[in-house]
């Protein structure tokens, strides 16, 4: 059975159909790239998948169970975690704390325990810090060396890394990455690609959907690609499948790369 299957997903804003009848499915461990010009509905699709928007029509099923219409926090707890295109870290919290916000402990720790069972709370906190530091380890010492830094003081590329760490801290089944390379130069982008390969390797069961503006970035990374244009999926398949697609070339590849 597919891990995630999306059928005819649609959302209208007034007269605008931002996402129109999009369907795809994702197996465990699979990586899907979504590309499309600016305004083609990529972020809106993520907002639908993560429960920020409720779809006007269509279904989303995780392990066969429908999840469309559930609030964002429930969807996260079911195993879909995301990052944001413009980066939405908790800017005044430090690096460890940002990752701890993704950990299960944060949502299950007892309030009364914090007052009446200080030893237990302390043990839980130590455990959370250990886990957070292990997760940072995916990026070598890059984040570990800045673990106590406030998020807003991080260099740009490390902010994006931190956002990925926070998202995988909950051990999600599906990870949604919204333009992780936005604002990076080519060197940083290449490094990020390697980082993502590392993430994939360290959690083989994790399915990833990555939205990208830049076709080159996903080429070596994903198993399948979906091309969005004006909210519609105009092509869906392996990279080789879509590369020759005329519609795609017209809509996207032929275009100047501008955001």
């Amino acid at each position: 059975m597919e891990l995630l299957s999306v059928k005819d997903l649609t959302i209208n804003f007034g007269g605008v159909t931002a996402v129109s009848k999009v369907s795809f499915s994702l197996a465990a461990g699979e990586m899907l790239g979504i590309i499309g010009p600016n305004g083609s509905g990529k972020t809106t699709l993520f907002n639908l998948l993560s429960g920020i928007y409720q779809p006007s029509a269509g279904t989303i099923a995780l392990n066969g169970a429908p999840i469309q219409g559930l609030p964002a926090n429930k969807i996260f707890n079911l195993g879909i975690a995301r990052t944001f295109q413009n980066g939405r870290l908790f800017w005044n919290l430090n690096v460890v704390e940002n990752i701890i916000m993704g950990l299960e402990e944060t949502r299950t720790a007892s309030i009364f325990g914090a007052i009446f069972a200080p030893a237990k709370e302390k043990a839980l906190q130590t455990q959370a810090i250990t886990k957070a530091m292990d997760i940072m380890g995916i990026f070598g010492s890059l984040l570990l060396n800045q673990a106590d830094k406030i998020a807003k003081d991080l260099p740009y590329a490390d902010r994006r890394r931190l956002e990925i760490c926070r998202a995988i801290a909950s051990r999600p089944k599906v990870l949604l990455l919204d333009e992780p390379s936005a604002g990076m130069d080519s060197l940083e982008t290449e490094r990020l690609m390697n980082d993502l390969l590392k993430v994939k390797k360290s959690i083989p069961d994790l399915s990833i959907i990555v939205v990208e503006h830049d076709m080159g970035f996903i080429k070596g990374l994903v198993d399948k690609v979906m091309v969005l244009n004006y909210g519609e999926s105009i092509a869906y398949g392996t990279f080789a499948d879509i590369a020759g697609n005329e519609q795609v070339i017209n809509a996207y590849l032929g275009q100047e790369d501008g955001r």
Binding site: S50, G51, I52, P71, A72, N73, F76, N77, A81, R82, F84, R88, L89, F90, W91, N92, L93, E97, M101, G102, T106, R107, R166, S170
Partner: peptide, 13 residues
């Protein structure tokens, strides 16, 4: 974290 970003905390469960 909620003080920082009410939308992001919802997306984090």
């Amino acid at each position: 974290a909620m003080r920082e970003d009410q939308l992001a905390v919802q997306c984090y469960g």
